[in-house]
Structure formats: C-alpha cells, structure tokens
C-alpha cells in the first residue's frame, strides 16, 4: 500500500512542475553538449597540433626554421624541401624497396592466414582446439625472445642483407589474422560448402570460390593491417638489412637523420618533409577505409 501511495505522490509532484523541469533539463542538455564540444576540440587539437607543426616546419627554409620565436606558418613556402628529399638521399630506392617488401609480404600473409583459418573453421581433427589456443597464445610472444636465434638462422641461410627475412616468415600465417579470419569464416553458413561438396568440389575449390569471395570484407581488414605492419616495420629491417641500397623507408629515414649530407645547411626541414612522405600512405589508407579499421580492431581486440 505504501509503495502505491508513494508512486502516486511522485506522479503528482512531477505533474505539478512539468514546465520548469523541462526547461532546466533543456538548459542542462545544451550546456552539456557545449562542454562536450570544447573537450573534444581540445583533445583533437592536442592530437593534431604536432602534425600541423611538422607540415609547417617541412615547408620552411633552413634559416626560418632557426628563428626564435618560431613562426607558425612559413613566410615563404619552400616546396623544394620535398624534392631535396629525393635528391639528397636514395629515397626513391627506399620507396621501391618498401613497396616490394610490403606487397610480397602482404600477399603471403593474407593467403596463408586465410588457408590456416579455413582449416580451423571447417575441419574436425584431433587436437584442433588445443592447436588454436596455441595460435592465440603466440600473439603474446614478444619478438625479443626469438630474435637472436632467428637472426642466426637467417645468417646461416645467407639471407642477411636480402629482403627474404622480411618476406618469407609472412608465408606461414600470422596468429592475429588467423584469428580474425577464423571468426569471420565461422559466420559463413556451412550449407554452401556442403552443397558444393555434394557436387564433388574439392576443399581447395570450396576455399577459393566460396569462402574467399564471401569473406571479402574480412580480407580487406587483414590487408589493411598487414599493409600497415609491413610499411611501418622498423626492427626487422634494422636487424636484417645493412646496406643503404637495400633500406626500407623506416630505416632509410633514420639513415637520413644520422648521416649529414653535403654542405652545412641544417636539414630538419627536409627531415620533416621526408617523415611526412613516409607517414602519408597510412593516413591516406585510413581515410579511404575507415570502417575496416574499426571493424578489425573491435573484432580482434588488438591494437591497430
């Protein structure tokens, strides 16, 4: 009885001042939205100011770069910094090396990871779940633990200062992508492959003409992460490559940083321009394929 009484009282109280409350709520809401925008803009500024500063610095002359207090925008825009990047270091070679390694490693990583994921999602075999658990646990294995013997192995094979150490390991599937693709393959109805099997299709054919075409979105996600992984890779090239004509962009950039070239001109502006050239493809890719990024991160729970 008491509860009913209370409810009625609440109802009555609420009805007695509906207009004032609504107004108050509206004000609260508007004010809240305002604060949200201010916060969001501040955070966005903190994240984008370094980019802005790098772009601005990359277009300044060496003299202007050393002016204090610094100018926010270059007084005269010096595009030549960007062409200097190519004339002062074998930057075009770095780019083509990076493109070759990235492309070959990506192809291997996508195909092998998809094949392994197909095995885990469509076949029953003893020890399958334990094996899959093992795949997941290798995601936790840090590269540092295996780097010395891996280096010795590649040295024994004569692969040091070739692209092979940066490409071949990708052809054995990667835990992260195997997991992502397996989760996706599990959602593809089995009726499709059962029907194909009755028609006498082999598992290779089912994989190639049923599973892969239906998994385009997941494959695109894997392709994007694989691209970023190889484009940005630093440690592998650092350890396995040692002559500048074999360098990738990431260590080429560092080579640029450490080796002053002809003349005494300060080279920070050119270095900034070079950094932006290296950083540009991942940024473009992100804007072109945002939804795949988010999906990939969310389904795998791994960092991008």
């Amino acid at each position: 009885m008491a509860t009913t009484e209370q409810r009625i009282r609440t109802l009555v109280n609420n009805q007695s001042q509906p207009i004032g409350r609504a107004r108050k709520n509206l004000f609260k809401q508007r004010f809240g939205t305002f604060v949200l925008y201010i916060l969001a803009i501040l955070v966005a500024l903190a994240f984008s100011l370094p980019f802005f500063w790098t772009i601005s610095s990359s277009l300044k002359s060496a003299a202007e770069l050393y002016v204090f207090p610094p100018t926010f925008l270059p007084e005269t825009i010096r595009w030549k910094n960007y062409s200097d990047v190519f004339s002062l270091a074998p930057f075009a070679t770095f780019i083509s090396n990076t493109v070759i390694i990235t492309a070959l490693a990506m192809v291997g990583q996508i195909i092998s990871s998809a094949a392994v994921a197909y095995g885990f999602s469509r076949f029953k075999f003893p020890g399958r779940d334990a094996l899959f658990f093992l795949v997941l646990s290798t995601m936790m294995l840090p590269w540092q633990v295996t780097i010395v013997p891996t280096f010795l192995l590649f040295r024994y094979l004569g692969w040091i200062n070739t692209f092979l150490p940066l490409i071949i390991p990708s052809y054995f599937g990667s835990a992260f992508y195997i997991f992502l693709l397996r989760q996706f393959f599990m959602t593809i109805p089995r009726d499709l492959d059962e029907a194909a099997k009755l028609d006498g299709a082999s598992s290779v054919r089912i994989f190639w003409s049923i599973i892969l075409p239906l998994a385009k979105a997941a494959l695109a996600t894997v392709a994007i992460f694989s691209f970023l992984e190889h484009w940005n890779e630093f440690i592998g090239p650092l350890i396995f490559l040692n002559s500048p004509e074999k360098f990738t962009l990431s260590i080429g950039l560092r080579y640029f940083m450490d080796n002053p070239f002809e003349g005494d001109e300060p080279r920070e502006a050119i270095l900034m321009a070079a950094s932006l050239i290296v950083a540009l493809p991942p940024l473009i890719l992100f804007f072109a394929a945002q939804k795949y990024f988010v999906r990939g991160i969310v389904t795998t729970g791994l960092k991008g």
Partner: peptide
C-alpha cells in the same frame, strides 16, 4: 586515431 598511424621513425 590518426597519431597511432604514424610510423615510429616519423
């Protein structure tokens, strides 16, 4: 999200 895409050397 953009900063997380910056290559480490850059």
């Amino acid at each position: 999200y953009l900063p997380s895409l910056t290559p480490i050397v850059a």
